[in-house]
Amino acid sequence: MPDPAPAVIDAADVASPHGLRRRLVGAGLVGLAGSLLPGLATRAGAAPDEAPVRQPTEDDLVLLRFAQQAELAAVSLYTTALSTELGPVTEAVLGRVRDAHLAYSQALGAEIGRTAPGSPAADLVTELEPAFAGPQSGMISTALGLENTLVATHTQLIGTLRSSNAAKLIASVVIAESRHAVVLADLSGVTEVDAYVVNDATPLEPAEG
């Protein structure tokens, strides 16, 4: 399986010891809860800017703009893939996945409003476009890495966003993109059960500023 670009996509090797993953999930939950306690303890007397909110805050909007650019990068990359010679099944799958990312970018744009960037993350497109334009086996593996990375990125965003509306939207995207990853894993020919369900991808980080 070709190794997708480092730093951006780190999910090609999705198989990992299952016990390790479970420990990570468990430790993550406990750690998260532990880190919450001071905040929860002071919630009753919390300052207004720390209270849960429905609408995105200014900080949330920065993250949502970043998320929209990542989704639009995926649209661009799948459009590139669909312009190559593909089998009918692969074409149907990639077409559905492309349409899904387009829908997510539009929904994010609606949540952001007038300041929505409406343009893809150029560095992501530049880095992955050769693989998406290349042979099908490498393309599918890179697409799998991209989906896992987007899932990891959005999952991390949910842990940062204060707006419940924004978190609700991105949660529905995470569920769907997790399913994308399984189909792409199957198309790429993996056989280990863990390879379908484990996501060790490194989340994308928003650029400074």
């Binding site: 940062t160 949660a171 996501n199």
Partner: peptide, 12 residues
Amino acid sequence: PALRQAAITIGG
């Protein structure tokens, strides 16, 4: 937010 992240990790 940290609990939301934990929930969607399990949901995903």
